[in-house]
Structure formats: structure tokens, C-alpha cells
Amino acid sequence: MKKIRSPRQKKKILKIRMAAAALAAMILVLTAVFAEAFAPNDPYKTSAALIRTAPCREFLFGTDNLGRCVFSRVLVGARTTISATVFLVAVSFLIGTIVGMLGGYFGGILDEVMMRIADVMLAFPQMVVAIAVAGILGGGLAGAMIALGITMWTGFARLARSHTLSIRNEPYIEAARLCGVSPVEILGRHILPNILAPVLTSALTQIGTTMIGISGLSFLGLGVVPPQAEWGSMISEARAYIQIAPWAVLFPALATILTIVVFNYLGDAVMEYREL
């Protein structure tokens, strides 16, 4: 006989999945924050004698072309990548949500203008815009973040706007208007809490793509400037001697993949849980 799961059971399973993903993400973030404490070696210390050492007990992930400890650099690079990503997603989320809510609730000229700006942003492939903007701004982590953020907020704005549109004519919003609640309060008290969940979920799923974006720009030399450790730029540097020292590419790449998978999994788990 087919096993039937009640919604409650399903919810329980999803809850466990979500908790596991959240735990993994937490570990990653904590590792990134306390990277220096965990790093066995100085990530910036070069050594001519230890060039391209294969992974061993002292250098878990080996060393790179300048004799720097890859393990320590991956750890410290985590901080750069993860914190830049989280910060960028958070700022885009904030701006996008506010713009989308205002446009969706009030409509009119304001909405038109903002949505046309968003349309223009979306008319180009995100990465192309990012490369162009980062190129103009001339590299650096801040430049890369601005370049990515310039298109990212529009996604949140559209999402927030469509959710706002779908609830602005709900009876409870109308009831609040009849009760003399001011528009600002309606937005803050009634609309924001009710659209927050889907927009936040989308923000979670954006973390993975944004991380690829930042690492990608760094890989192209448009993001983090060496010698600062960052996964994308590490891969880029080490790719020249990949046949001699594959570990110098492999481990930052694995770290990137692992982090993206964890955050995407978390986003999916949360989304599925909410849809149930």
C-alpha cells in the first residue's frame, strides 16, 4: 500500500530540512566571521621555499604560486565573499522592497517611473551590465557590489510590487482605510509583514547567484584586487598553473560550490515550507 503523508508530517520533514540547511549556512557564516581564528597560517605570508606544495598536514589544501596557504586563504576569502554577498543582497532587498511597495500601493506616476527604470535594467543581461559598470568604476570590491546591485534591486522591487498589488484590495486593507489608518501605517503594519515572507525567501535564493556574480567579477579582475583573498580571484590567479598545482584551483572552487549549494538549498527549503 502507498504510504500517505499528512500535511503535518510533510511539514515536519520540511522543517527538519530547513533547520539542517540553516545550520549549515550558520556554520559557513560563522566560519567566515571567525576566519582568522581558524586559519592555521597567515593567508598573506609568501614563501619562496614553499611554492606549490601539495596538500599535506601543515598545509591542508596545499600552497599556491607564492607559497601562501590555500586553506587559510579559502577561510579568509569566505569572509570577503560571504559578507559582501549578504550585505549586497540585504541592501538590494531593502531598496527594492520599499520601492516596490510604494509603487504597488500608490500606483500612478511614481509606479510608472520606477517600473520603467526597472524595465530598462532588466533589458540587459545582468552580468553584461555588471561587467560594464564594474569596468567603468575600475575594479575594487565596492565597484563590483554597485555593479551587481544596480540590477538586483529591480527583482525585489517587482516581487514586492506584485505582492503589494495582490493584497492592497484585500478587505483587511480596506477595513484599515475605513478605520482611518494612515497610508504609511498601512504599508508598515499591514502590507510589509504580509509580503515580507515571499520577498525574504527570494532574497535567500538570490544569495547563491550573487555569490557567483561577485566571484565571477573577481575572476575577471573586476572585483577584489589582489592580494586580498577572494575565491573568484584565487581561482583566476591559480588557473595559470592548474596542471602543476590543481589544488590551488580546486579548493576555492569547491568552497564556492558548497556555499552556493547550501544557500540555494536553504532558499528552496524555506520556499517549499512556505508553499505547503
Binding site: 478587505p171 480596506e174 477595513a175 475605513l178 509583514p193 504580509n194
Partner: peptide
């Protein structure tokens, strides 16, 4: 007038009572 003004004198009772309350409040 605005709904806010009308609301001082009259209130609407909606068909879907659940939808007429903020689900989070």
C-alpha cells in the same frame, strides 16, 4: 470624501470575515 472620513460614521462588514482581518495580527 475619503474612506477614512466615511469610516467615522459607517463600517463595512465583509463577506469573507477572515480576509477582513490582517492574518498576522
Amino acid at each position: 470624501s475619503s474612506p477614512s472620513f466615511a469610516g467615522r460614521y459607517m463600517q463595512m462588514i465583509f463577506q469573507d470575515a477572515y480576509a477582513s482581518f490582517d492574518p498576522r495580527m
